[in-house]
Design a protein around this nucleic acid. Sequence first.
DNA 1: AGATTGATAAGG
DNA 2: CTTATCAATCTT
Length: 168
Amino acid sequence: MRLTREYFKQDALFLAEDLLGKLLCRKINGKVLKFRITETECYLGKGDSASHAGKKKTERNKIMFKQGGYAYVYLCYGIHYMFNIVSGQKNTAQGVLVRGVENFDGPGKLTKALKIDKSFNGADLVKSKEIWLENDGIKFSFKRAKRVGIEYAKKEDREKLWRFIAIK
DNA sequence: AGATTGATAAGG
DNA sequence: CTTATCAATCTT
């Protein structure tokens, strides 16, 4: 079953956990590929110094201020595309970073495998025929960990256990 | 541990 | 315009 707008409008903290085991679907050259999500991180906008949207709205992060269900894709370190799922209500600026799927562990690797690039920034995951998410009823158990790659953030934000990793 | 890489944000 | 910075990865 395809995930709905109502699903994506839930809190990012809940979604980051619940998205583990869901299927990330991508249509390439007429073929549909499905990858099971194995690792996520949660980013809240307001007061989260690790989030792009933690301080203020900019041209790049404005997608995160939309209601849940949109894709936020951006280039990091000039090399790697990151795929995020905007979540929560409008203007809450929450998002879930998809860090890994089955067989492609790592945020830069999964976007490369799925051929996700900047043109998907702002894509509607509820309506798009190119990229969407599905729930087939499988739910993984998981463990929590500290987020990575955010050394620039405040100490209290660095130590939050907002990274979710599926256990095989 | 170091090189890489280029869009983006902030400042003059 | 210029500069610094970065939700990472690959190679030593």
